[in-house]
Simulated assay, not measured.
Amino acid sequence: MDTTLSVHNPTLIVAAIFLAFVLLELACSAFRQSRSLRRDLLIEIVGSSLLLAVTFPLVMWLSGTVLQHLVPQLKGALVGIPWIAGFVLFLLLDDMTQYWWHRLTHRVPALYALHRAHHSAPYMSIRIVYRNNSFYYLLMPGLWLSGTLIYLGLAPVYYVYLILKMTVIFGAHSSIAWDDKLYGVRALRPLLWLLERTLSTPSTHSAHHGLSADDGITHYKGNFGNLLFFWDILFGTAKITRRRPQAYGIEHLAAASWREELFWPLVRTRRVARAAQPEPEVAQ
Rank of each mutant, 00 (worst) to 15 (best):
M1I: 03
D2V: 00
T11F: 12
T11M: 08
T11W: 13
A15I: 12
A20T: 06
A30Y: 07
F31P: 01
R35V: 14
L37A: 10
I43W: 13
V46M: 10
G47Q: 09
S48I: 05
F56D: 06
V59T: 01
L62W: 00
S63L: 05
V66R: 03
L74A: 12
G76R: 01
A77H: 01
L78D: 03
G80D: 04
W83L: 04
F87I: 00
L91E: 02
T97A: 01
Q98Y: 13
L104I: 11
H118S: 04
Y130T: 15
N132P: 12
N133R: 12
S134N: 01
S134R: 01
F135W: 15
F135K: 12
Y137R: 11
W144R: 00
W144L: 00
L149N: 01
L149Q: 01
Y151E: 07
Y159H: 10
K165V: 07
I169C: 01
G171L: 02
G171Y: 03
G171K: 02
A172R: 06
S175I: 10
L182D: 03
R186K: 14
R186Y: 08
E196P: 02
R197I: 02
S203H: 08
L211I: 08
S212A: 06
A213H: 11
A213L: 09
A213T: 10
I217S: 10
H219D: 01
K221N: 15
N226H: 11
F230T: 14
W231V: 00
I233N: 15
R243F: 00
R243K: 11
A247T: 06
E251D: 15
L253A: 12
A255I: 05
R259W: 13
W264Y: 14
L266E: 07
R268L: 10
A275E: 11
Q277Y: 02
Q284T: 05
